[in-house]
Simulated assay, not measured.
Amino acid sequence: MKKWMNVRNCLLLNGEYIHTQCCAHILSLIVKECLKDGDISITRIWKAVKYVRLSPSRLARFKGCVEREKISYKDLICLDVETRRNSTYLMLVIAVKYKKAFDLLEISDAKYVKELSKEKGPGVPLSKDWDFVNTVLPFLRIFYYATMRIFGSS
């Protein structure tokens, strides 16, 4: 961008002091700020996903819950990357599809509840957490597609 502007004589002092922020990073900061109020809800769901993803035996127990709940969705749950808010959207979209499996895991796996609640942890996801996530997903979807469009553009 700097070269393009410099060739067209659009810069002062040959662009010596120009500094541009990445648009995707700015979008990420906006989303992060907007999600602060619901941070505990997202943290609970993130911890639940992390618990399941931590070992093959936990993932197998979770898959058993998915089968018992007859959930036909096939994508594997995934963790987000803190610095990429579009990955938070993907994590939450998939986790919401498996809500019933997480609820069943809470009933059938005492270790799951204990692990998420130890050392003043946030605990297992509550009904209000899932409600919050369902409320913010349309908002996150907009930013997800905007970020993807920015990455896909030249």
Rank of each mutant, 00 (worst) to 15 (best):
I42L: 15
G64T: 11
T43M: 09
L92T: 10
L79C: 06
K36D: 03
I107R: 13
T83H: 03
K120R: 14
R58G: 01
R44E: 02
V81I: 15
T83S: 01
I77T: 10
T43G: 00
A60N: 04
V113E: 08
Y89I: 10
E82W: 00
E106A: 15
L54D: 11
I71E: 07
G121K: 13
K70N: 10
D37C: 07
K100Q: 12
S57W: 04
G38R: 08
Y51S: 03
K74V: 12
L59G: 00
I107E: 15
L116G: 05
D75E: 14
L59D: 07
D37P: 01
I77H: 01
G64P: 00
D75T: 10
R61L: 11
K97E: 15
E82M: 01
L35F: 08
E82S: 07
K111W: 00
C34G: 12
V81H: 01
V49W: 02
R53S: 07
K32F: 09
G121S: 12
G38M: 12
L116M: 10
D80L: 05
K32D: 12
Y89Q: 08
D109Y: 04
S57H: 06
S87D: 05
K70R: 13
L105S: 08
G64M: 11
E106G: 07
A60K: 09
K32W: 10
R53I: 08
V31C: 12
L116H: 05
R84F: 03
T88F: 08
P56N: 13
L116D: 10
Y112G: 01
E33D: 15
G64W: 09
L90F: 11
E115W: 05
D109V: 07
C65H: 04
R85H: 03
E69S: 07
I94W: 02
K36I: 14
S117G: 06
L105A: 10
F62Y: 04
D37S: 13
Y112L: 09
R68E: 14
D75N: 09
Y98Q: 13
K111E: 15
S87A: 09
V52S: 03
D80T: 06
W46C: 06
A110K: 13
D80W: 07
I94L: 05
D39K: 15
G64Y: 07
F62P: 00
V93H: 07
K63N: 12
L35D: 11
K36W: 02
K36S: 09
K99Q: 15
I77C: 06
C78N: 05
C65L: 03
S41V: 08
A95R: 04
D37F: 09
R85I: 05
E82Q: 06
I107H: 06
D109L: 03
K97N: 14
I30M: 15
S72A: 11
D103G: 01
S87F: 06
E82D: 14
T83Y: 02
V49M: 04
V81C: 13
I94K: 14
R53D: 06
Y73L: 07
L76H: 02
K36C: 04
R68V: 01
I40G: 02
P56T: 15
K50D: 13
L59S: 07
F62G: 00
E119K: 14
K118H: 12
R58C: 03
A95M: 09
K74R: 14
L104Q: 11
E69M: 14
D103I: 11
N86A: 05
I42E: 06
L92E: 10
K114R: 14
